[in-house]
Computed example of a mutant assay.
Amino acid sequence: MKRTSIRRVIVPGIAAMTLALAGCAAGNETDSGSTGSDGDSASSDVTVEGQYTIGGASSQEAAQLAWTTGFSDVQPGATVTYEPVGSGGGRENFISGAYLTAGSDAYLVDEAPDNELTAATERCEGEAPIEVPNYVSPIAIIFNVDGVDELNLSPETLAGIFAGEITEWNDPAIEADNPDADLPSATINPVHRSDESGTTENFTNYLSVAAGDTWTEGAVETWPQAFGGEGAQGTSGVVSAVTDGQNAIGYADASQAGDLPAANIGVGSDFVEPSAEAAANILAVSPAAEDAGENQLVFDLDYTTDEADTYPIVLTSYMIACPTYPEQADADFVKAYLSYVLSEEGQQFGADEAGVAPLAPELEEQALAIVDTITAG
């Protein structure tokens, strides 16, 4: 996936506590269970105790709340707090050592000026970091438009709206996608993320691939100011701005869209709604990322697919971890937590509580096999 992102992160309230969190991460107290003869952490019978702070993509907030709750049920001595600081903040705090593991809506790449993959490898003492998918969910194009309950948008029309080229709801391009709708003669209020965001990167990557003649900025984590629109902090901020706005449209993880209607997106000759099942289908038609290592189960999504019942604008979120941790307790926690998240039980709990699409069994098995290699040394 070719990206033109700027991953220099300034996270409100986080910069001041990064060093403190790093100390907490190093000093988390746990009571580990049995270990193998070589000192590796044991599998699912390891007991984890202590308080842990992890964080990252705000789009994962609902799912992570479910998983941290479920994890405490199977590991009663452990308390896990997930901070929804954004994908960039999660990666930065993982690289700095403030988080033992982090959630991100984009896999690590080496791009100037941050070269995050190299930085994460250095943080993991020379080993390439583990990156496994934990979450697939549609990015819903949510809207609040007077008199409109259902909306179809082709890729070109969607790009035109967010690029600031289509400014009225009764524009001919929108009317062509919605011949039976009663579209108002009203100004469009497009809402975007104001913070650095993996959701924005995934959304704009889709626009650049599916409608590159209209969306010319490529994939970016920070919204281009030249395209205008209303900025809002975090996923919850976008949802609130669209809910409280007039004739507004925005993009957000579908699991957090609440009661807002979401547009159907043009795929081939059809318009597909953003269901969890349709979002999960895109992984089946997408290739592994070029140059991905054995620890990276990452994908370049096929945004131009014409496969039926496939929703193309999705978040494939990842958990980032080290293959080896200096402390056995840290390795036990990361391995146990990620194993729970990726387990059939954990994936179903996330689906039930947060509306995420469970990983396909084969993908789940591959991810668990990678996580099972986490050790201490």
Rank of each mutant, 00 (worst) to 15 (best):
T35V: 10
E127C: 02
S43Q: 14
V85I: 14
E165V: 04
I374W: 00
M319Q: 08
A288H: 09
T79L: 07
Q51I: 14
S137G: 03
A354P: 01
Q225E: 09
T157D: 04
N93V: 02
A210S: 10
N115W: 10
G77V: 08
E201N: 14
R91E: 15
K2N: 13
A119T: 05
P326S: 07
Y337S: 05
P179G: 11
E122C: 10
K335G: 08
G268D: 10
L368E: 02
Y206K: 01
Y107I: 01
I282T: 09
G13W: 09
T200A: 13
G229K: 00
N189E: 13
T373D: 15
V239W: 06
P361V: 06
I54P: 00
P287G: 12
D73I: 15
P133M: 13
V191C: 13
G23K: 03
V371L: 05
E345G: 11
S343I: 12
A15N: 09
Q328N: 12
P113R: 15
I282E: 03
R7N: 14
L117P: 00
F94L: 06
T373K: 08
S41E: 15
V242A: 08
V298K: 01
N144I: 12
L207F: 05
E61P: 02
A98L: 02
N295K: 11
L117E: 01
P287K: 07
G350Q: 02
L297K: 01
L315S: 08
I282A: 05
S275W: 02
A78Y: 01
A62F: 08
I370Q: 06
E61T: 07
W67R: 01
L338Y: 00
I141G: 00
A66D: 01
P184E: 03
Y99K: 01
P12I: 15
A288G: 08
P361C: 11
D309Y: 04
D259Q: 11
S59D: 10
S185G: 07
V9L: 13
S286V: 11
D40L: 09
V298D: 00
V314N: 07
Y325L: 11
S343L: 12
P138G: 05
S197K: 15
E327D: 08
A106W: 08
D45E: 15
F143I: 12
P155D: 06
T375A: 11
I14Y: 12
E353H: 13
E156Y: 10
S154M: 11
D149N: 13
N281Q: 07
L368W: 03
E122Q: 14
E201M: 14
E175K: 13
L21H: 00
D270Y: 08
E116L: 15
E29T: 12
A232G: 05
